[in-house]
């Protein structure tokens, strides 16, 4: 007698909000196109059970000045464009970025502090160089972020940039800037479901529509806390699909920054022979981190190495085919 297995499907009641980055000329910006993420009604890539109306996307990180502290593998892969954020952004678009993530550092390689005017100038030059939507991050220190990101927001009104990091320490300023100049925010919380939820509530209380909020649950790289990010993202996604309205934001993971930070992706000499070739090791580190986090719910992965970009694009298209 033939056996028939009933495919087990969860009956999810919630869905992820759709968030659109960027604005075209018609919409009050200058982007050649916009990109929408979110909308899922099931866990990542489980097409037998629900919808994933928008494909997860790949961002490429661009910095406002030469990243002298980057892994030699990355410096070699990108070459001269690292000296010019506009050229760098253009190159990133050419090699397949869906969005640009512009990181405004607090200081250049020589230690000169970045002024708000310089931050405003750099966003304008990157906007001119690429037609892609842009995520902009400050140096990651709340006060400095406020100063620089407000200048960026003012310099690009109506562009629907995603401003980050918007944390519990500085969300008022960042959200106010997003409201005043028509942008989005990246709500960032330290690997904790309740803190992520609370920040979304605070942001929403300031009347920024949740359709303009991306969520960054904090990325831990492979070997450096990926299991915490992986599980918090799974918990957030399950909560969202179960109907918890304050966890239903699309998630962004800064995979490149975390994967290329540590010894394993930076050091060729004086490490065990079992670690193998530095270039392949570093790229594998980034591919594995990105893949695992996509499988746990990332809607945007921001990467650094051009090869990883190709591999992750192909992975996403395979996982979306059905």
């Amino acid at each position: 007698m033939p056996v028939t297995v009933e495919i087990p499907k969860e009956r999810w009641t919630g869905s992820i909000r759709e968030v659109t980055l960027g604005a075209t000329a018609e919409q009050g910006g200058t982007r050649a196109k916009t990109v929408t993420v979110g909308g899922e009604t099931t866990l990542p890539f489980l097409h037998f059970e629900g919808e994933m109306p928008h494909t997860p996307i790949v961002g490429i990180e661009v910095q406002d000045s030469y990243p002298a502290d980057w892994s030699p593998v990355l410096l070699a892969a990108w070459g001269d464009v690292l000296n010019d954020p506009a050229a760098w952004a253009k190159k990133a678009e050419e090699i397949g970025a869906d969005v640009i993530m512009l990181k405004v550092r607090g200081a250049d390689a020589d230690g000169n502090a970045t002024s708000p005017e310089q931050a405003a100038a750099v966003i304008q030059s990157v906007l001119q160089a690429t037609g892609l939507p842009i995520i902009v991050r400050g140096p990651g220190q709340a006060e400095l972020d406020n100063k620089l990101l407000v200048a960026v927001a003012e310099a690009a009104p109506g562009e629907r940039l995603a401003l980050g990091l918007c944390e519990d320490k500085n969300y008022r300023t960042i959200v106010a800037a997003a409201l005043a100049h028509d942008h989005l925010v990246v709500a960032s919380s330290p690997i904790d479901v309740n803190l992520a939820k609370q920040l979304n509530i605070l942001i929403s209380d300031m009347r920024l529509p949740l359709e303009r909020v991306l969520m960054d649950p904090t990325t831990g790289a492979l070997g450096y806390g990926i299991e915490y990010s992986y599980s918090v993202m799974e918990r957030l996604r399950v909560a969202a699909l179960t109907g918890d309205g304050m966890t239903q934001q699309p998630m962004v993971c800064f995979v490149g920054e975390e994967s290329w930070r540590q010894k394993e992706s930076r050091t060729a000499e004086g490490v065990p022979a079992e670690w193998g070739d530095i270039e392949k090791r570093g790229i594998t580190w980034e591919i594995a981190t990105a893949t695992a986090l996509l499988e746990s719910g990332a809607d945007i992965v921001v990467l650094r190495h051009p090869e990883t970009v190709d591999v992750v694009h192909e992975t996403i298209s395979k996982l979306m085919a059905h």
């Binding site: 070997g223 394993e264 079992e274 670690w275 193998g276 392949k280 090791r281 594998t284 594995a288």
Partner: peptide, 8 residues
């Protein structure tokens, strides 16, 4: 390849 085995 060790460079792949170690991350995995």
């Amino acid at each position: 390849d060790p460079a792949v085995a170690y991350p995995l």
